[in-house]
Amino acid sequence: MGIVGTGTDGTDGTEDMDGTAGERGRLINVAYRLLGSVTEAEDAVQEAYARWYGLPGSRREEILSPGAWLTTVTGRVCLDLLGSARARRERYVGAWLPEPLPDRAQWDRAGSSAGPGDPADRIVLDESVAMAFLVVLESMTPAERVAFVLHDVFRYPFAEIAGVLGRTPAACKQLAASARRRVETGRGPAPATGRADVVRHVKEAWETKDVAALVGLLDPAAVMTADGGGTVGTVLRPVEGGARVARYMVAVADRAPGLELLERSVNGVPGLVARKDGVVVTVAAFDVADGRVARIWVVRNPEKLRPWTGDFPEAPQGPPRHA
């Protein structure tokens, strides 16, 4: 895929002097895929830059490729964060899901509370940030995830990845192969228009509280997973089975009168956003297979919805640009 961030760098101009300013967008893209968190990705990149400028000037001048150095350090910081994240997520209330991202056009319309240099504004939306893919990445060990993302997504050679993981290139190759086996290869993604149509029908059935229609749109083995972070009410365990998911969705609609549903791109693929009194309270991502919804990931944790703050006016619908 060879994904490279192309947005603004959000620096204060200091890094421009040594040519590292343009690396920030790429590093944010790498870190978000490794961590599934915009905030943690920004922290990891900031730490890498801090270490870069903590080097003596003479040492920095000796480094032939500052970008490669920053990538290695960012990868190591992410590796450490992934290790500690496992312990933190054991204490997390309910399921932990990656932070959902709006489409760039939606982001531009809404405006960022953190300003135009916010890192979420620079993440390239493609299949490697789709919620389905990020959830698979969560099943990997930290070392597998780093090896897989750096090699299979960003096309870094194993010789460079070895410097991040502190292992031999051969060992890194084995880690990536192990991670690759975890990624589902049995079916390809549904066409963009097909996904959008299914999600639109789900929206319509949800709004009318039509349980039968929802059951018809959901795979019999569909699973809904919700992330409230312990700060808002939501189901703590996955809801399994299309009929149970449909009944749960209607029950939620009954308990939340006045909820406004909008069709929006979520991490580059069609999804739904729920607003209450003009405030985004829920972002739902969907995995569609064979014309039916197989998985629904619902993010309600307010800390993970910060990129969705602001006013989201009605926008032309259709396949997202990066689908």
Score class of each variant (00 low, 15 high):
10 G>M: 04
16 D>L: 14
21 A>V: 09
23 E>M: 08
25 G>I: 00
31 A>Q: 04
37 S>T: 09
48 A>L: 07
50 A>N: 07
58 S>V: 15
61 E>S: 09
62 E>H: 10
62 E>F: 10
70 L>A: 02
73 V>Q: 11
75 G>M: 03
76 R>D: 01
91 R>G: 01
93 V>P: 03
95 A>C: 03
98 P>E: 09
109 R>V: 13
110 A>R: 14
115 G>L: 12
120 A>S: 10
123 I>E: 07
128 S>E: 10
130 A>Q: 13
137 L>D: 05
139 S>C: 00
140 M>G: 06
140 M>F: 14
141 T>V: 02
146 V>R: 01
151 H>P: 09
153 V>Q: 05
155 R>V: 13
155 R>Y: 12
155 R>I: 07
167 R>Q: 11
169 P>L: 14
170 A>G: 13
176 A>P: 03
178 S>Q: 15
178 S>C: 05
180 R>K: 12
182 R>T: 03
189 P>L: 11
202 V>G: 03
205 A>S: 08
208 T>Y: 00
210 D>Y: 07
218 L>W: 03
225 T>A: 10
225 T>W: 10
233 G>N: 05
233 G>A: 12
234 T>E: 11
236 L>K: 08
238 P>N: 08
249 M>N: 11
252 V>G: 07
254 D>K: 12
256 A>I: 00
259 L>V: 06
259 L>T: 01
260 E>C: 05
260 E>S: 11
260 E>T: 11
261 L>C: 01
263 E>W: 05
271 G>Y: 14
275 R>L: 09
275 R>W: 01
282 T>N: 13
282 T>L: 12
283 V>H: 10
287 D>L: 15
290 D>K: 09
294 A>L: 14
298 V>K: 11
298 V>D: 14
298 V>W: 11
302 P>T: 04
306 R>F: 03
317 Q>A: 09
318 G>P: 08
318 G>C: 06
321 R>M: 01
322 H>R: 08
323 A>F: 06
